[in-house]
């Protein structure tokens, strides 16, 4: 029973995060925020898994590093979008 609670909560949260990611908001920044939410849920799942397996959770550190790099890359794309377009609305992007 406790296993189901352990795993079904992050799964539901992950699916909610995916819905939030693909729900076509007005701003790019909200999409990046929901991406960070998904990454946090993944970190939660990974941490529970690694704790169960006595992996000493070193992979969670690498996961955090990679996800921080990804978030920084998303923010830098946001900055370059603002430099070229002047805003971060999805309706002002041409080819999307």
């Amino acid at each position: 029973m406790i296993m189901i609670l352990y795993w079904s909560l992050p799964m539901i949260l992950f699916i909610l995060g995916l819905f939030c990611f693909v729900s076509n908001r007005k701003h790019l920044l909200s999409m990046l925020l929901s991406l960070e939410f998904i990454v946090l849920i993944l970190f939660f799942m990974l941490f529970i898994y690694l704790n169960m397996l006595n992996y000493e959770s070193y992979f969670s550190m690498m996961f955090l590093t990679f996800s921080v790099c990804e978030g920084a890359l998303g923010l830098s794309i946001l900055v370059s979008m603002i430099r070229t377009h002047g805003n971060d609305y999805f309706q002002s992007f041409n080819i999307m």
């Binding site: 995916l18 990611f21 693909v22 790019l28 999409m31 991406l35 998904i38 990454v39 993944l42 990804e70 890359l73 998303g74 794309i77 370059s80 979008m81 430099r83 070229t84 377009h85 992007f93 041409n94 080819i95 999307m96």
Partner: peptide, 21 residues
């Protein structure tokens, strides 16, 4: 300062980040 390539890199980033998560 290229408008279209910035947009396409944004599109690539969003799809690939979603896929990798």
């Amino acid at each position: 300062n290229n408008l279209t390539s910035t947009e396409s890199s944004l599109k690539y980033f969003l799809t690939q980040a979603l896929a990798s998560t």
